[in-house]
């Protein structure tokens, strides 16, 4: 009890200097309230969704579009268009 009073006193005295004593103020938007009032609550389901959706590894797509780098591995080039290309070889 004494400790709590001390904290209050401390906050009161130093209030002008210390923002830390100020209560945090949150503006709760209308959608949050609306959801709280009228949307169903499925805590286990939502927690499962979050758990499965947070990814610590790559999404294991079985196939991905060939990257530029990978594509170039399978590039086949034309030969020289110079009539006598040995000149520059």
């Amino acid at each position: 009890m004494t400790h709590r009073r001390f904290v209050y006193l401390w906050c009161f005295v130093f209030l002008p200097f210390l923002g830390a004593c100020a209560p945090k103020v949150y503006v709760i938007d209308r959608q949050t309230i609306l959801e709280d009032e009228a949307a169903g609550e499925w805590p286990d389901f939502e927690s499962e969704i979050l758990k499965k959706s947070k990814a610590h590894g790559p999404t294991p797509f079985s196939k991905v579009p060939m990257s530029k780098k990978r594509e170039s591995l399978y590039n086949v080039l034309n030969g020289s268009l110079v009539t006598n290309s040995e000149d520059t070889r």
């Binding site: 990814a55 590894g57 790559p58 999404t59 991905v64 990257s67």
Partner: peptide, 13 residues
């Protein structure tokens, strides 16, 4: 930039 698997996960997170 060249890896859709990692990009998809980063965006989801």
């Amino acid at each position: 930039w060249d890896n859709p698997r990692i990009r998809a996960s980063a965006l989801m997170n």
